[in-house]
Simulated scan of single mutants.
Amino acid sequence: MVSHTEIQASNALINDATAPRTAVFVGGTAGIGQLTIRALVATDASVRIFIIGRKSAEERMNVFIQELRTTNPKAEIIWIEAEVSLLAETKRVCAVIKGKEAHVDLLFLTTGYAPFGGRKETTEGVEIAQSLEHYTRVLFILHLLPLLEKAEAPRVVSVLSGGMEMANIDLDDIDLKRPGNFNVMKAQTQYMALHTMVLEKLADQNPNVAFIHSWPGWVNTGNVKRGRDPNSFLSWLIWFTLEPLIWLFATSDDVSAQMHLFQCTSAAFGGRGIPWNGKPGVTSLGKETDGLFLVNKNCDCTPNAKVLAKLREEAQGKIWDHTQDVLRPYL
């Protein structure tokens, strides 16, 4: 376990020379994304941050962005409005960033929610939670990889469920479209395995980029409320049961922010970044560099070796090919 004191000491070394100079936050309008942005800006480093979010968040984000500019006048904050559950919108946003930047140091991805309200599809025919938690995240990575490759210490941090994968996924119905084949637990199990397998493949293909799939534990982001009628019985049940548990056991906002800032900057993951004298992180393939780091809520690496070996042998090829087929029209 990496102690909070060690994390704070590492983060205290972030400055103009060591900070990710250009960072893209997808899902930075609330929760862990917003907390991490605030922590990065508070380092007083000179940074340029793209925040991508929905139109409905724009008014609230204008207030947040003004707060950031007051906290750190050297920080340049760029808001891009987009509905990133849509693959076409993701492609458009990436084109905007590629038109403005020569490199990207950090891509931080946090979009998604647990689909307690049942299966709901985007206008492109993709289940919304699956699009947010897997497809659009991978599409952002694929489009921005050329800019990441030009950075000195590029990093992709995808916050979902790294190290929590299970092997019992449905390869005959990867998108869970068959009638009666969708429920929230099956969907989340499916999506976390899909995402880890594709991230591992991307990490193997791009050894100069550090890839992290982070499991943050419980953080009170409000995502359990998303995707359902707030006046429904299910919403009431979640409010009555889950929210008190989250409040009781959740990691505090400040601790979560510092943990994820550490994941964004420390050489503990891949050897590039803020110098780290502690135990180095180990990838999903057991290496200390060049691979995918599955990082838990204590900033420890959890390779989940037995499950991932099975997924790698039986599922990774099919998952990779299927993901490529879905994304191909938007590349």
Rank of each mutant, 00 (worst) to 15 (best):
N298V: 03
F269V: 08
N277H: 10
A268R: 15
S252I: 06
T251Y: 06
D254V: 12
L285E: 08
A268S: 10
F269L: 04
N304A: 04
F249V: 15
A268G: 10
E243P: 01
I238P: 08
D253Y: 13
T251E: 13
E288H: 12
N277P: 06
T265H: 02
S266F: 04
V295W: 03
T283M: 00
P275R: 04
S266P: 12
L245T: 14
G291E: 01
T265F: 07
N298D: 09
D300C: 02
F240D: 09
S266N: 05
N296S: 06
I274P: 00
N296V: 04
F262W: 10
L285P: 00
T302Q: 07
K279C: 08
S252N: 10
C301Y: 07
V282G: 01
V295M: 01
W276D: 01
G281K: 03
D300S: 06
C264Q: 05
F293L: 00
I246D: 03
L248P: 10
R272Q: 13
K297A: 08
S235D: 14
I274G: 00
F293H: 01
W239F: 11
N304D: 06
G291A: 03
D290S: 06
S235V: 09
F249W: 09
A268P: 06
L242M: 14
F240N: 11
R272P: 01
T265N: 02
L248D: 07
T283H: 00
V295C: 01
Q258K: 10
L237C: 12
I246G: 01
T302R: 04
A250R: 04
L285Y: 04
W239L: 12
C299I: 04
T241I: 15
P275N: 04
E288N: 12
C301T: 15
I246T: 13
P280K: 05
C299N: 10
K297D: 07
W239S: 15
G271H: 08
A268C: 12
C299T: 09
W239N: 15
W276F: 14
N304E: 07
W247F: 14
G273S: 02
A257C: 10
D254C: 05
G271N: 08
A250T: 03
F269E: 01
N298P: 00
V282I: 12
L234D: 13
K297E: 08
Q263M: 15
D253M: 08
P303S: 04
V295T: 05
T283R: 00
Q258C: 02
L248T: 08
S235F: 11
M259D: 14
Q263V: 09
E288T: 12
F293A: 00
I274Y: 00
G273F: 00
P303E: 05
E243N: 11
A250H: 06
V255N: 07
L234W: 14
S284T: 11
D290W: 03
T289E: 03
T289L: 05
M259S: 15
